[in-house]
Design a protein around this nucleic acid. Sequence first.
DNA 1: CTAATTTCGTGCATTTTATCTCGAATGACG
DNA 2: CGTCATTCGAGATAAAATGCACGAAATTAG
Lengths: 221, 221
Amino acid sequence: MTPTSNNGKTGISIPAATMERLPRYLMQLFRLRRKNCDSVNSQSLGEALGLKDTQIRKDLSYFGVFGKARYGYNVEYLIKAIESILGLTSEYNLAIIGVGNLGKALANYAVQVNSNFVLKLLVDTNPEIIGTTVADLPVRSMDDLPQLLSTQEIHIGIIAVPEKAAVDVANILVEGGVRALYNFSQAELHHIEGVFIENASISYGVYKLAHHLSGSWPRKK
Amino acid sequence: MTPTSNNGKTGISIPAATMERLPRYLMQLFRLRRKNCDSVNSQSLGEALGLKDTQIRKDLSYFGVFGKARYGYNVEYLIKAIESILGLTSEYNLAIIGVGNLGKALANYAVQVNSNFVLKLLVDTNPEIIGTTVADLPVRSMDDLPQLLSTQEIHIGIIAVPEKAAVDVANILVEGGVRALYNFSQAELHHIEGVFIENASISYGVYKLAHHLSGSWPRKK
DNA sequence: CTAATTTCGTGCATTTTATCTCGAATGACG
DNA sequence: CGTCATTCGAGATAAAATGCACGAAATTAG
């Protein structure tokens, strides 16, 4: 069986919560590979990620049989399998709109993360930023964005502009044919027909921490 | 009844999923306030956030009665109530560790978000950054961090350093008495006794989008 | 004042998610 | 080669979250 096959499980719908965890599994597997680990079992994987071992086995079981009794999972094989499940078999072109501090951080980030994501385009409105080079790419003018989108295919648009500009930027991207948006602005983007939207919600975590500190967050065991 | 009271619901444990949504409600309420809206009903709040109206009513009902039939919720009152639930009745001092692009972005962010969060400390290891001013604060040396933590109380430590340094930074913060960490590094931080940890996981969204684009993400209706 | 209508709050059904349990497979070891 | 310990896979069970449906409250209109 190849890692890409689904082991006859077609038709069964995968829990969204499971899909959410796969990137975390993948990241941890990359770390293990860097440490030259050949195999990993569900228990140690769980400990590294703060999850129960049964959770990991159940998650992986949706996609077929990856593990072996008394051995665990082969790291390399599982990486290939999860990459395949996540659709990391092809490349995705990224555009970052807004090259302030956050945009720059994301640009440098994007290069490291995974070679399946290729940063193609940086755009800003600020004349002082336009023309500078960030992550080996020139920053282009927002005015040129529609035209730039027509000359190269962008799969994922990363929105790193102030809240007020986010909706306009989203519309330009969608009109330019971008079908997936990763929104780092405070704006709430939803419900654009045929477009996948992921909201990063950077600031919410601090509220959760405030609540924890203030007293009575219901703890998980 | 004051917004802070629990309307006799003490003892009932609040679903974690509900707590996760409260910051989003709060943000949307801030937007409504800025637009001088006095009231909002569960339906329009739901539309703005991509949630069902029943979800919002149920969430709020855990904390008592905030709404009125044929009127909805008073924006100002609901803001006060949620702020109280989230523990935003006192101030929280923030330290940002790592003043690269991400740290700078977070520093400028933190100032806007909410006056309950007060940025007190910026720290980095890079001699070229140490001594510069970001968000009206001088960047201090990482070497001085333990000492700085002993002279002022920091409630929330924001980790914006490279993955390799994250665990060390976390340890220094915890030893310095910080009980809540917001981790923006790629490192997985878990299980520090008595410390609340929130992982921002900035890069995972792009994997989800890749999977969406590649085909068969199970859609929610 | 009464009826009509809107919108909340909440008990209950449904769906989704997490956890438990245990048989089966695998490799280690005598 | 047989026994033992380990670790997976997956069905059964428990827990959590969501969504429905309806009674009650409140406002408006006649």
